[in-house]
Amino acid sequence: MDNDFTQPTLNRRDLLIAGAASAAVTLPAGSAAQGTAEATPAMASVTLEVNGRSETLQCDTRTTLLDVLREHLHLTGTKKGCDQGQCGACTVLVNGRRVVSCLTLAVMQPGAKVTTVEGLSTTRRLHPMQAAFVKHDGYQCGYCTPGQICSAVGVLDEIKRGVPSHASKDLAARPVVSAAELRERMSGNICRCGAYSNIVDAMAEVAGVRV
C-alpha cells in the first residue's frame, strides 16, 4: 500500500477501492482458518429497467438494489449512507414510488422501472427539482442530495395523488403543499449539514406554492 501513495495520479476513490480489495482478499483466508464453512453464494439473474434502459445482471441473491445501482451499473449518484433504511441517502423511484434502495434486494425487483438521480431528467437540462435545489442552496456537502431530490420528486407526486400524511389535518380533504406537510413527508431523509429549510423552499417552488 505504501507504494500506492507515490502514485501521483491515484485519487482518494482509487485508494478506497484498493483498500477494500485488499480487505476482501484477506477475508476468506481468515474465515477458512477458523474452520467456518461459508456457504457458496447463491447467484440469480434479474432484469430491471434503470433510467429507461433494460439491464440484465447476474448477482448474488444478497445484492441490494442499491449495490446493483452503484457497483454493477456504476450509477454512483445514489448514495449509501446508513445501509439500514434510516437516512434516506439511497432513495430512488421504483415504478414511480420513492423507496430506500438499501432495503430491497435486486432479485425482489424483476421488471421494475427504477429511476435514479441520473435519470430524473430525460433531456440535457436539469430536472426542475434539481434546478430548484441549486437555486435555493438546498444542500451543503451534497452527500444526501440525490436521495433528497428523488424523495422530493416522490413527495410532490404523493401529494398530487392525494396520499395523506401525519401532518394532514383532515383525512377527508385533499392534502395541500405546506411547510408542515413537506417537513413531515421528508422526515425519512436526513441532512447532517442542515439544509432542511432550503430544501423546503426548493420543493415549494417546484410545487408552485409559497410556504
Binding site: G85, G88, R98, V99, S151, H166, S187, G188
Partner: peptide, 29 residues
C-alpha cells in the same frame, strides 16, 4: 392502506396509526 378512501373515512384511526409510523419511503415498501 392509509390512503384508501374507505379506510380514511370509516377506519380513520387505522389511517392515522399508519401515517404515524416510519417514513414515507418505508411506508411505500
Amino acid at each position: 392502506l392509509a390512503s384508501d378512501r374507505h379506510i380514511r373515512r370509516d377506519y380513520a384511526v387505522l389511517s392515522r396509526a399508519l401515517l404515524a409510523g416510519a417514513s414515507g419511503q418505508l411506508r411505500n415498501m
